[in-house]
Simulated assay, not measured.
Amino acid sequence: MKIAIIGGSGFVGTKLIDLLIQVSDNEIRNIDKSASSKHPSITMIGDVLDRTGLTAMLAGVEAVILLAAEHRDDVSPVSKYYDVNVKGMQNTLEAMEANGIKRIIFTSSVAVYGLDKENPKEDTPTDPFNHYGKSKLKAEMVLQEWYRDHSDWNVNIIRPTVIFGEGNRGNVYNLLHQIASGKFIMIGSGTNQKSMSYIGNIIAFINYLVMVKTTGYNVYNYVDKPDLSTNDLVHYTGRILGKKIPTVRVPYWLGMLGGYGFDVLAFIIRRKLSISSIRVKKFCAVTQYDATKAMNSGFIPPYDLQYGLKQVLKAEFSVSNENSV
């Protein structure tokens, strides 16, 4: 099968291409506006906002994996979220139709549910709180509406929680780095649950959908269980690193006040800062999601969550000991 990954030059895409090349004889094509440092020979420079170019690049393809997205929480102007995530979806579908392609795997996000929801399932009402979540939901709605008129298509939507892994410099890495460095400040009680997805498992699940879920319209949350609290993350990090982690604690209201202060400072100096009220709010929120449907689909995650955390800490922070979690 000829598979096109749109947006495959980033962290998830690179790891996914590694896996797809390893486990199958499928022909892989990467379409991205950025060059791929690891897979340049199969990469075509393209943009989801260029429907004509995208149509030409999808010629001969049988299935599409759509990863391309604006996903940072400080994108400016906010219209970029909707241009890339929503219009990009529409352009992709039209380019697929022009080439007779009827299979798409789309990585959405649990951000469509909003914050502090009670373990939402796939049929839980959506309530996104930021432009990223709103744009991802609108992209899903475009795809859902498309399927109503294209019922012979195969659509698989994955809503992963925060993804982490070796080489990633996202939110989980930043949190683990702060904990490991001893400069960590716990805002709030630390009892809020955090659902996470290890990169080795999320790419294995995408491959599973490509190979097995070949019919119908399917939506899956993806989370590696069990969920951990922020306190748990501090505990596991200290245990894996073999050292006591000092933790300064401040009340939630004070943390939010500091976040608003950084918002004002960022506005004054016209720079994006690593601390903001949104990031404080997300840090303290319960981000726990139900993944029963994915785990009952026949998919078996190849790694457990604690293994993923240990691998990241070993790779990123030069852990030489072999302490178990």
Rank of each mutant, 00 (worst) to 15 (best):
M196E: 06
K225S: 13
M57V: 07
G200Y: 11
P226C: 07
V64S: 02
L257T: 13
N192K: 10
D263E: 09
G7I: 08
K121A: 15
G53M: 07
L67F: 06
L273D: 06
D227R: 06
R239H: 13
R169A: 12
L115M: 12
T247E: 05
G261Q: 06
V64H: 05
L265C: 06
Y82T: 05
S24M: 08
D73N: 15
D74G: 11
D227E: 13
L49R: 14
L19K: 02
H177M: 15
E145S: 15
I163E: 01
G170N: 04
V23Q: 15
S79A: 14
N119H: 14
S297V: 11
L228D: 00
Y147E: 08
S76I: 15
A98L: 06
A98C: 07
K282E: 07
V155F: 04
F184Y: 13
S36V: 03
A285P: 03
I45C: 02
S297H: 09
M1T: 06
D47N: 15
L58H: 02
T237S: 03
N296M: 14
D73H: 13
L19R: 02
Y252A: 09
L115A: 09
L265K: 08
V64P: 00
K314L: 07
L209R: 06
K281R: 14
L305A: 00
R103I: 04
Y208G: 01
R103M: 04
A285E: 03
G8T: 06
S324H: 09
N207I: 03
F106A: 01
K213H: 14
G60S: 08
D290A: 04
A180K: 11
N174I: 09
S276R: 04
S277K: 07
V110N: 06
R279L: 05
R148N: 15
A180T: 15
E70W: 09
I42E: 11
P120M: 09
N91L: 04
G60N: 11
A204Q: 10
D152G: 08
Y217M: 10
V12C: 04
A98K: 07
L66E: 02
A4W: 00
E122G: 02
K15F: 05
R159I: 00
N156E: 12
L265W: 08
E62A: 07
K272T: 12
Q288R: 13
A291T: 04
T52F: 12
Q144N: 14
G261K: 03
T292A: 11
I269Y: 05
